[in-house]
Write a protein that binds this DNA or RNA. Structure first.
Lengths: 205, 205, 205, 205
DNA sequence: CATGAATGAGCATTCATTCAT
DNA sequence: AATGAATGAATGCTCATTCAT
């Protein structure tokens, strides 16, 4: 038991080291530069180690993505669950998304890079948001309609709600790209501005 | 501002053919699929022809980008020049940007793909918007401040204007990604919604 | 037309050169040694050239196999077509098979190597002779039965004919392996001995 | 002739387990699939264990071969020793070889695979039969000549005896390849047919 | 005895680019 | 003006082997 735990600890440490190095390269130099050779060089190990700890490069990349989703969910969920109104939910959603970016800067940049590069075998984008089907947009749409019923938001058609939801997501996704280009962004202030912008854009007139 | 007038008719035609094929591949199958071999195959020519007409692959890619910027500018300028208020200018900017996407769908998708892939020698993103220096954002910021003076917009600090400007650009850039995923988007309606959203977000309370 | 023919000639020459080098390596050092790097080294070219002329390593290997089948068929067919009895046909089949090995020594050794190494994705042998379904065995079985009717061969059950047919093929296949180990085999004499052996094994008592 | 008596019971068991798993993989999926990783996985142990018990992969492979030779010899010797004539000896040799295959099916298939893949450092085949030097062929040649003296076989030159001996071996070796492709072969009947074939091929006219 | 971890060489393949014709 | 041919570096991946624990 003790030996297993220790070995598992080493394995876990290596996996984290490799993932951290991959994130470092992807966030600073882009997805295309993140070859196994570059990642291994950054980590000071041989290429084979990566293959030993991850079944494939895709596996490594997927781990980086799902790791972020997991910590994002863990971070966001309590805040969102505490909200009692749609207005509060959306404001919190925007604000906490941005603040999460602040604490996971490189990881978020890396995952954004990954998502915008991931293609299926035919070259079709794997993760681009389809305004009619994207899960995140659907949740935002539902909240916008709820906000209308609660008297905080203006009337929305399904389409107008979807466009606003997509615009909120674009603002957050776009911020991730800005992060890769701007090192000294004040994200607390940025979050407040975004909350203001979308609160005004959605509110009852 | 053509760089060289010496291009013969045939040469010009070949360049356009190659660029069109590259745009077709990049927009439909993604940047990674756009190898010279694939582009040549699509065009029904040999790889050498591309090298003959473009000094490098980067040169071809840059031409595709600057071509779009040129036609975008040609399309947008008269509409924007006709505006007498900042409010009108920004509404027009948003609306006509979206309509331009409608008429240059594949080219816009391709350039968006390129922009999010292009890196300099060190791996730094070549085109990501820096909120403090990006030319487009600067123009929007100027217009937002003018709108305040004209009594149509709320008060903005430099930072709050920059965040709103960046959000407008993110909405438009993000729409380009959606275009690659959603075939049947009603762009006229989408433009109107975006105009409404940002008019509300900027207006004087 | 002339230019096409000339270029096609160069291409043909390179393909033959590559195939010849691959045959040389496979026949002398075995299938496992025949990496693209080794073949390219033997040919004094870069690995890329092979990929340029063959769509894949499998393609190159398949060409080597089908080339031999084609020349084998071209060589054998007239002799076999000239035979009027089953006895003559089988004697000729054995004799000419061995003589063909004499003139295509390395190629035959290489293809035997290839055939005995080729596996499908699950590792199942692709070309091992199934006594009940192998096409070559089926032809020999038919001839054995015909020879019985013509009064030259003893009576065969289907099974006993199949075992004899398989034994004839094993003798020829096995000779190919011997060729890889024995440089100075007298194949004309060997052919005569095999003819004698199987004539005695099949004849009417 | 065991080389080392020091092997503990556990060590012996482990070696057998590893060899059995290697035989299973080689016989069912081919030599190329038999990486140490696959063998270790099949055995449910780590790769290191194999290296611990065998000095190298080649050592493991050689053990599988010599193990089969040893049990083959143990099985065959009493039957052959009981024969008083060359005719009886050769018939028994063929029949018992085939029956041994029946009882050691996978092991025989695996060893046949190994023999046709094993090469020395220079790539020369390690086990292909040289008609002039192969020990098994030499024994059969001696028996054929004895059979002539005993009045059962026709006259043989050294060469004609060697070809017949090689053909007998090819028939048996070839049967092993068939075993890998045909699951339901009646080996008792097959043995009888082979005895008939070679008795007829060798007999006095 | 056994393991997990790591290595480094080798694999087939793809790529942008160059060049003689 | 255009091409086919060739290059050499880089890619993700697998492998037998080694070694500290």
């Amino acid at each position: 038991m003790k030996s297993q735990k220790k070995l598992s600890f080493i394995e876990e440490a290596r996996r984290n080291q490799i993932m951290t190095c991959a994130i470092e390269i992807i966030s600073s130099r882009g997805y295309a530069q993140a070859s196994l050779a570059q990642i291994a060089k950054e980590a000071g190990i041989s290429k084979g180690v990566i293959s030993y700890h991850f079944s494939s490069k895709d596996d490594l990349i997927e781990q980086i993505v799902s790791d972020l989703y997991e910590s994002g969910s863990t971070f966001m969920t309590p805040y969102l669950a505490a909200q009692t109104t749609a207005l509060g939910w959306i404001n919190t959603y925007i604000e906490k998304n941005v603040l999460f970016m602040k604490s996971h800067r490189k990881h978020v940049i890396a995952v954004t890079e990954i998502i915008f590069h991931a293609r299926d075998e035919e070259g079709k984008p794997r993760h681009f948001r389809n305004i009619d089907t994207d899960a995140t947009i659907n949740v935002l749409v539902k909240m916008l309609h709820r906000g209308t019923m609660e008297g905080d938001f203006r009337e929305f058609t399904d389409f107008s709600a979807r466009v606003l939801a997509a615009t909120i997501r674009s603002a957050i996704d776009g911020l991730s790209f800005q992060l890769a280009a701007s090192l000294d962004l004040d994200l607390d202030a940025y979050a407040k501005e975004l909350v203001t912008i979308f609160q005004m854009a959605a509110r009852k007139v």
